[in-house]
């Protein structure tokens, strides 16, 4: 019997193992997420405690032998006073706990609100069906960087996110770093966060936004400041010119075929902005908003049959023969 209890206990702890990792609100890696995690734990603990107390009281009442019931119309003053006291005590305790929790969450909110008040970096994230447009704002316009799906931030520094959308409501949620916040068309929401340590944190759209909502993820990559600066400077360069004859053919095809209608590659005639910016696409770790890892094969697979990988996504199946497909892949692979 005892062994069963132990096994049950062990089994119930097992799911908690899933709480750590690169996409978990219970494994905070920054002050905003930390504040929220602390709240979660505290709320859960307190509520569990209250629940246990209530259960104990209930069980005690059930177990206690029933006293003979007197005349219900005759009130026993002492007993009534006693009962009233208990009710009011419980009421008071409830009020105190609720007010306490309210205050806790209020102060947690205040803490969240000031995290990014001195943020040196502002990143504008625009939700699209089904990818993220990421723009690094800068007071010097020619140092504004637009990229997609992969967000690099300096570790240990507060970062301000401005969240908006162009089509439907999305929600930006990187559980290890911050709470979720909606991206609303025509409206700007502000989310501040800080990653304490370098690392890769997965984010996911947290508001159902259509067919490929599940495959709308992002990666926040926190790096030490010098590495981040180097990355930013690197990304500001125009796209690498095609290095091989095959890549050159791919470059020409890219500009001749439907690719050019939606995508941008800096330094070329391709200036589309309704699909991810591909200027440095091969430097990213994933493809199609975190759906595939970046590799030549995955690039080819995604171009050849996006509808097989993300059915309903807005990237169409384009009629390309083997040579054309490989040429475009060779070109894109060189865009580091």
């Amino acid at each position: 019997m005892r062994r069963i209890w132990v096994m049950c206990g062990a089994a119930s702890i097992l799911p908690l193992a899933g709480c750590s990792g690169w996409q978990s609100a219970l494994d905070p890696k920054g002050p905003a997420a930390g504040e929220l995690a602390w709240l979660i734990w505290f709320f859960t603990a307190l509520c569990t405690l209250v629940w246990l107390l209530v259960m104990i009281a209930l069980i005690m009442t059930l177990i206690r032998r029933a006293r003979p019931i007197g005349d219900p119309l005759v009130l026993d003053a002492t007993s009534e006073r006693h009962k009233t006291r208990i009710v009011f005590a419980a009421l008071g305790a409830t009020a105190v706990i609720l007010i306490g929790l309210t205050l806790l969450s209020f102060f947690a909110n205040r803490t969240l609100a000031v995290i990014g008040s001195d943020a040196a970096l502002t990143i504008r994230v625009t939700g699209h069906q089904w990818w993220w447009e990421v723009r690094y704002e800068n007071s010097q316009p020619n140092r504004i960087l637009t990229t997609a799906n992969e967000i690099h931030i300096p570790a240990g520094e507060p970062v301000r996110f401005i969240l908006t959308s162009t089509d439907v409501i999305h929600s930006f949620w990187v559980p290890n770093l911050a709470g979720k916040l909606d991206l609303i068309p025509g409206h700007e929401n502000v989310l501040d966060l800080k990653a304490d340590k370098p690392g890769v944190y997965r984010g996911q759209c947290a508001e159902f936004c259509g067919a490929q909502h599940a495959n709308m993820s992002t990666f926040v990559i926190a790096e030490p400041r010098p590495i981040f600066d180097a990355w930013l400077n690197d990304q500001l360069r125009p796209a690498a010119p095609p290095a091989s004859p095959e890549a050159k053919a791919g470059h020409d095809l890219f500009l001749k075929r439907p690719c050019v209608m939606c995508h941008k590659i800096g330094g070329t005639m391709a200036g589309g902005s309704v699909a991810p910016d591909l200027t440095h696409v091969a430097s990213r770790q994933t493809l199609a908003a975190g759906t595939l890892t970046m590799s030549r094969g995955n690039l080819a697979a995604w171009i050849a049959d996006p509808q097989g990988i993300k059915p309903g996504a807005y990237m169409p199946v384009v009629d390309l023969n083997g040579d054309e497909l490989n040429a475009i892949v060779a070109y894109l692979e060189g865009l580091r």
């Binding site: 439907p258 050019v260 209608m261 169409p316 384009v318 009629d319």
Partner: peptide, 8 residues
Amino acid sequence: RDRVPDDQ
């Protein structure tokens, strides 16, 4: 032609 897939 060639800029937009036929189905589109």
